[in-house]
Amino acid sequence: MASTMLATSLLLTTTACSSGDEVTTKPNTPAKSERPTADAKTTSPEPSKEADAKVGDSITLRGANDGEQLDVTVKKFLDPAKGADEFNQPQSGKKWVAVQLQLVNTGSRAYSDSPANGAKVADTDGQRFDSWFGEIAAGPAMASDLNLPAGEKALGWIVFEIPKTSKVVTVQYGMNSGFAEQTGQWKVS
């Protein structure tokens, strides 16, 4: 009995630690000087106020392959998002919301992906929604076949179709069409 419990405990520990999946909500902060200046007064440090990322904040994410890294910024969020024309409209009983993402390749190699595949939104009920094809009046869509060289950036809108009664509270983005171990999360309301 004891050996069975030990084996089960080891299996559960191994399983829990093996995934490596991580959702990060901590925005990037400007680097601070680590050395105090000669005239710096000795004071107790202020308590850390780690707020969740919000619209305008960047989160650094690692990709699934060595050298893949992006600084991802939620530039804008629209609820509702207006269709570009009479042909680009949500289905009956639905509305469109949209997030404008900026991706900056801070890695050491080119990054290739379809960014909309790695984006999701969640509403107040916990329902999660994948991206949706639609052109909006706010501006151009994020490239569907992005090939981003190191040091360059991409900017574009990703659209989601959700029930009219839903209120989106978070946006998530994961590299490699959402299969990377890290996912960034931003509060939008």
Rank of each mutant, 00 (worst) to 15 (best):
M175T: 06
M5Y: 06
T73R: 05
D39K: 15
D39T: 14
P163W: 12
S108T: 15
G126H: 02
T106D: 00
I59C: 02
D57E: 02
P36M: 13
G184S: 11
G184R: 01
A16P: 01
S3C: 10
L78D: 09
E161Q: 15
T60K: 09
S19M: 12
S189A: 15
S48M: 14
D52G: 00
L146D: 10
G63I: 03
Q89P: 04
V99C: 07
E50R: 00
T60W: 00
T37P: 00
G83P: 05
N105F: 12
T170V: 09
T106P: 03
E86F: 10
I162P: 00
V104W: 01
G107K: 07
P80G: 08
T183P: 01
Q185L: 05
L155C: 02
D79C: 04
K32F: 10
A143H: 09
Y111S: 13
L70I: 11
E34Y: 12
W186R: 03
K94E: 10
Q185D: 04
A119F: 03
Y173H: 05
F129W: 13
A16L: 15
A38N: 13
N176T: 06
R35Y: 09
T4C: 12
K54R: 06
W186I: 05
K167E: 14
E161Y: 07
P45W: 05
W186V: 05
E68M: 12
G139R: 12
G63S: 14
T24H: 03
S48N: 00
A116N: 01
F160R: 01
N105D: 06
M175F: 04
P149R: 10
A98C: 03
M1Y: 07
A40F: 14
P149S: 14
V104G: 01
R109D: 13
V74R: 01
F160K: 02
G67H: 07
L148I: 08
A51N: 06
V99N: 03
L6A: 10
T42V: 15
G20I: 09
E50G: 06
T42E: 13
E22R: 11
